[in-house]
Nucleic acid binder design. Structure first.
Lengths: 229, 229
DNA sequence: TTTCCGTCAATCGTATACAATTTTGTTGCA
DNA sequence: TGCAACAAAATTGTATACGATTGACGGAAA
């Protein structure tokens, strides 16, 4: 992903992205170029380039002369992202049932074990790991373009969950991850797709049920935006 | 796409992207920040930001301390992009058969007419229009995220065609565009998907048959790279 | 008290400057 | 002639500077 790109820009980009996904930086939060730059000991030039990349991926939005903010996807946008995610991941399953590298199952099962290791806790790590399982699935297809898009929508889904979901409890999710692996290994594409659809539907459902943003600042900033514009 | 960013960066980005798609800037060509900046009368700061965006979309690659180049997708990468395009566009058809705005057919037919208007000529305009038909289809789904990804892969396919295809003659393509519209209007999802698959297959086939890059400079740069690294 | 307007601080948009790195050209030598 | 080493030019990576825009605060008028 970061190719052989400029070290500093990619470093800032990686850190900001991780902070957003792990909810250290919450949706709606401002990201002043000066502040971020001082924090990391780099100039605004670097931060700005990282922000451009983050905006392209939908994790950050910028308003002219106002600066960058962690994205707060609307419910419509969230719906669209989930739809695209479902489209892509269904096809990932189909491809994997057709062709999967030898080490694939080992990698997947190892990842699930990592997930089970942090199962009780409801922290940022489990959020990140849950997403990374799906990204790993996509990478195993060998199609890097597909994997990149899957990674993008999975990350944005993590952001959406942090906005709309009350709890990230992914207890059932981990179990479903195992079921997906089993179904792929059995070559039962349709069953695997069914589990994945159900899995994503559950994730999406948890987001939609808790329709209210759970942070006061998100609510306020939302109302504030309506007043302003 | 460019959001509310009426900035210089977006202007340079748009111009460069158009130039790449229309093959004014050919794959492998260098894009020195100075030169581009002088050409458009802006500083390197602006150009660099535009290049960052173009790289994120896969139209440009940059090598550290070496600068930016118009992307030269390998055949493997081209294959992957076509695969993702097929996945996305099939789903676009399915969605449109399910729901399509009233004005949809008018917009589509108007676009096909524009394509037929430039049918004889084999110039950059027809290349752009052919791609824009598919982007328009995606936009009609109402799913902006989906539309954005479709636009991205379509653009990259245009780049691939300019690398690997001997001729861009899209005579049959225009006709197939009409057939796709008809099938959608008739509500025959599977037939529409069949036509689209065949359509994309033909495009992909034209690219693969002419497996040799048709520009000497592309060949040389490829050999050059092998020697250096 | 409320509303309007002006000033001000904060922050961005852009250009430029300097350092670091790569590429190129040239010279000397085998 | 061919190769190696060194010097010069070109180009990128990063930081800083300055003008421009925005939003906030506060005072004055209705």
């Amino acid at each position: 992903m970061s190719d052989s790109k400029s070290t500093l820009t990619s470093a800032v980009y990686d850190l900001l992205r991780k902070a957003i996904i792990e909810q250290a930086l919450k949706p709606g939060m401002r990201l002043p170029e000066d502040t971020v730059g001082e924090q990391f000991g780099v100039s605004r030039t670097i931060v700005r380039q990282a922000l451009v990349r983050l905006e392209n991926e939908g994790l950050v939005v910028t308003r002219r002369n106002r600066g960058a903010f962690v994205a707060e996807p609307s419910k419509e946008e969230a719906q669209q992202i989930f739809e695209v995610r479902r489209i892509l991941e269904m096809e990932v399953i189909r491809i994997l049932c057709d062709r999967i590298p030898q080490s694939g199952y080992d990698q997947l099962r190892a990842h699930v074990q990592k997930e089970q290791g942090v199962l009780g806790r409801d922290g940022p790590v489990s959020i990140r790991l849950a997403g990374e399982f799906h990204i790993l699935l996509a990478e195993l297809t060998g199609n890097e373009v597909l994997a990149r898009y899957v990674a993008e929508v999975v990350l944005r889904c993590s952001l959406i969950m942090s906005l709309y979901a009350r709890s990230h409890s992914s207890d059932c999710a981990v179990d479903e991850h195992s079921q997906i692996i089993d179904a792929i290994e059995a070559g039962e594409a349709e069953r695997a797709i069914g589990i994945m659809t159900h899995h994503l539907g559950a994730v999406q459902g948890r987001a939609e049920l808790a329709a209210q943003p759970d942070s006061i600042r998100a609510i306020l900033s939302h109302y504030g935006r309506e007043l302003v514009q």
